[in-house]
Nucleic acid binder design. Structure first.
Length: 813
DNA sequence: AGCACGCCGACT
DNA sequence: GTCGGCGTGCTC
């Protein structure tokens, strides 16, 4: 430490994501920023020869750095992150093996990510009459024309290279400015109001020269409506120009004010104010279970396992209400918020503008506004998809994860993280209660509840005591034997007819994953595959093309088999379009709403289709998984699952769990209100325990069986797993890299930790890139600082082949 | 990630 | 001899 004068040092995560930069760099805090710069502040710093933004993570007493550069500037008045979130980002980075700066970026709205520009211009005293190379003449003529140029634009010119630019700068013939900024579109709008009281205004209006009738008009307007008005509205209302208003503000009669505008995406909608509903005794018990640790401010986790229709949401609402009364804040995580408008409405209805909603459908500005309402303390409840777990609250009392088992809580790109695990961590930091609600917990969560890690509370009754629908499993092999070659079994077909004749609605679920319409040759059995991915092309009737699900490749349908030339090729499998056609054939005049990737591409399309169905504008809702989520349509009395076992045979240890969850969830959609429901599940392997037990409402036996299976094959929750996925356009290079990786890691592994592979990934090629994976299974808790974990951490960037891509996934803990 | 430094081949 | 290729190493 410098003994002569005390320096204030800030440790900064600089916005450069690389292996060597994923650490803290110390900077000197200039005198005028001492006290302003805080943990979580965004600052501008010089880094090497560049200027970048960074996040302040701490203020060390001393430094080992050979020299300290000063912090160049503070980017926000209020730090975008709290100290707790900075510590959390370090934990997430350590746990999911990624650079801290990636996590920090994921915690704030995208508009706060740094934007960097390097701008070139001609200095005022720059010489011009020098011999010019080709690049120089291009550069200078363009610069004279435009005044300034981005460095990347300059480098695109012929003959312009980095060394040339450097030389020009050294010679003083070119100047470079680094600009660091962010994409905040601060929507400040001008408001106008009276600056004097009515008496004064009236006098002033009379004293105005007679020709100033516009000004008089404005004053009269404010005499009638003394409240503030948006400048733009005032101008439009009176048909005047801004200068008139300016005159009056200059005279001090009117007052103008720049106000931050919050763009409330829900502003045009009315929400029905809702009151707390009386709780059933089961709900009351669940509520009490939350209340005890909440009041004690104790870090506590509860699995709230409640059947569909058991009224979990009301329990959430009342627990949140209690949290807010304690002066604390609450986060509600939902799987995909655009699919749960009903849920959002209930929260807004109960808590009004205290609710901030964060979802992917918002524009960057809207998202920023909602986030800032959380940050400023204006909002005390945050509801949103997984990233809402990072809501910048300072005193969290309660975090709710609805539909805890949903896969969307896991982020599949860097920074990879699981919102449930992050929520657990935040609850520990805040002394908060975590409530995980679901009818069908993930096997991991079930196991933790079972073994005492979580408190386990169940809701077994439906709120209005309605019976569960009867589930009929149909063996499609027998249907075939009986001569029924249709997509629809006789029970489903009959049920559908009866349901529609009664004027009721039906939901048909087609589990498209791994099962869609493809083209197959009847002579040689060959299918038409994507030229760039190892996967069959899917037939799209709308435009008569074959399309690749993974890369978007599209081609026409061949008239003959590309392999053997036979003309006997035909479509196989079942897509939603095909089901729709078959429905039209079978029940003419039937009104069908189809929900799949084709019909829900556009923003807000989901909501529109669901609303239309809810309003009874169709008899049948036909769709993929997305329709199984928490929707509540009172007139649905029949649910049909076209093929329950399509995902059962995927190479994924979660296949059985997913099947069970889907069938249970979708069954809950039938007969939720006055009418009794019925569920028909079609399957080719109805004897599989996931289908059998879902149909029999045997949840507990299913989880026990699944745990036994997982234990036997060593899968989570009986081990933790890292999955290394490597991809490369060259198969040979990939094989070599993968084997090299396996060879280098294997000797580092402690006993009890095993490396499996390398083996081809479930989809061995996507977009002309071959894919190979390595799995590492370990027991218990691991030391994140150990050599082998560090080696995994380095895998992503620690190679020199630009064509090689590596991702490291972690699950199971 | 960039960008400097540094050591090698192909031109003026 | 100089320009410019990309390997290596550093950025408080």
């Amino acid at each position: 430490m410098n003994g002569t004068k005390t320096r204030k040092i800030a440790a900064v995560y600089v916005d450069v994501a690389a292996e060597g930069t994923d650490k803290l760099f110390d900077y000197e805090v200039p005198d005028d920023l001492v006290g302003e710069v805080r943990i979580g502040s965004r600052v501008q710093v010089s880094f090497g020869s560049r200027k970048r933004m960074g996040y302040v993570a701490g203020f060390p007493e001393s430094t080992t750095a050979p020299r300290l550069k000063p912090i160049l500037g503070l980017m926000d008045l209020v730090p975008p992150l709290t100290p707790e979130l900075v510590r959390l980002s370090e934990w997430v980075a350590r746990t999911w093996l990624c650079p801290v700066i990636h996590v920090l970026h994921a915690m704030v709205p995208a508009v706060l990510k740094g934007r960097y520009q390097r701008v070139l211009s001609i200095p005022p005293d720059g010489e011009t009459s020098v011999l010019l190379s080709e690049g120089e003449s291009h550069l200078f003529s363009l610069l004279r024309e435009k005044g300034e140029l981005l460095q990347e634009e300059a480098l695109a010119l012929p003959g312009v290279t980095r060394p040339l630019l450097r030389r020009l700068v050294e010679e003083g013939r070119l100047s470079v400015e680094e600009r660091v900024g962010d994409g905040i579109t601060s929507r400040r709008r001008t408001w106008i109001g009276p600056a004097m009281d009515a008496e004064v205004l009236r006098e002033a209006a009379e004293e105005l020269p007679s020709q100033a009738f516009r000004q008089r008009e404005v004053l009269n307007f404010f005499l009638k409506h003394p409240e503030d008005i948006l400048l733009s509205h005032l101008l439009a209302a009176l048909g005047i120009s801004r200068s008139t208003v300016d005159r009056l503000t200059e005279k001090g009669l009117l007052r103008r004010e720049e106000r931050e505008e919050y763009r409330d995406p829900y502003v045009d909608r009315s929400f029905n104010r809702s009151r707390p509903l009386p709780l059933t005794s089961e709900q009351q018990q669940a509520f009490d279970a939350i209340l005890v640790p909440l009041r004690q401010r104790k870090d506590h986790a509860i699995l709230l396992q409640g059947v569909t229709g058991s009224g979990k949401t009301e329990v959430y609402l009342q627990a949140i209400s209690e949290t807010l009364e304690m002066g604390r804040q609450a986060i509600v995580l939902v799987p995909e918020i655009s699919l749960t408008p009903q849920m959002v409405e209930r929260f807004k209805g109960r808590f009004g503008s205290q609710v901030a909603v964060l979802h992917s459908g918002l524009s960057g500005g809207e998202r920023f506004d909602e986030w800032r309402r959380i940050q400023s303390g204006e909002a005390t409840v945050a509801i949103g998809a997984r990233s809402a777990v990072f809501a910048p609250f300072t005193d969290i009392g309660l975090i709710i994860i609805d539909e805890e088992h949903e896969g969307s809580y896991k982020q599949e790109e860097t920074p990879r993280y699981h919102a449930r695990e992050v929520a657990r961590r935040r609850c520990a930091d805040h002394g908060a209660v975590l409530v995980m609600g679901t009818a069908t917990p993930s096997v991991e969560t079930y196991f933790r509840a079972r073994t005492g890690g979580y408190q386990w509370v169940t809701l077994t009754e439906r709120v209005h005591g309605r019976p569960f629908p009867q589930i009929e499993v149909v063996d499609m092999r027998e249907e075939l034997r009986a001569g029924n070659r249709s997509i629809f079994s006789r029970p489903l077909s009959d049920g559908l007819t009866a349901c529609v004749n009664r004027g009721e609605q039906a939901v048909l679920l087609l589990n498209r994953r791994g099962y869609s319409t493809f083209v197959m040759c009847r002579e040689c059995g060959g299918t038409v595959e994507c030229p760039r991915c190892d996967i069959s092309l899917t037939y799209h009737r709308t435009n008569g093309t074959l399309r690749c699900h993974y890369c978007g490749h599209a081609e026409g349908v061949p008239k003959s088999c590309p392999t053997c030339g036979s003309i006997h090729i035909r479509y196989f499998g079942t897509g939603t379009q095909r089901v729709e056609e078959e429905l039209a054939k079978r029940l003419p005049g039937l009104r069908v709403i189809r929900m799949d990737v084709d019909t829900t591409n556009r923003k807000g399309a989901h909501e529109k289709l669901l609303t239309a169905f809810g309003e009874g504008k169709a008899d049948v809702l036909l769709g993929t998984q997305m329709i199984a989520k928490g929707l509540d349509f009172p007139r649905v009395t029949l649910v049909g699952v076209i093929a329950a076992d399509t995902m059962l045979h995927l190479p994924d240890y979660r296949a059985a769990e997913r099947t069970f969850q889907l069938l249970t969830q979708v069954s809950g959609r039938a007969g939720r209100h006055e009418m009794a429901g019925k569920v028909v599940v079609q399957a080719y392997t109805p004897e599989h325990y996931s289908i059998r037990m879902a149909a029999a409402y045997e949840g507990e036996p299913f989880y026990r069986e699944e745990c036994r299976t997982r234990k036997r094959h060593r899968y989570p929750p009986f081990c933790g797993m890292f999955k290394v996925l490597m991809s490369h356009p060259d198969r040979g290079a990939l094989m070599q890299a993968a084997h090299q990786t396996a060879r280098s890691i294997t000797p580092l592994l402690p006993s009890g930790t095993e490396l499996l592979g390398p083996v081809p990934a479930p989809i061995p090629r996507i977009k002309d890139r071959y894919r190979i994976q390595i799995m590492i299974k370990y027991d218990n808790h691991i030391d994140e600082e150990s050599e082998w974990v560090d080696a995994l951490r380095r895998l992503r960037t620690g190679h020199t082949d630009p064509n090689l891509r590596v991702s490291v996934d972690r699950e199971g803990f």
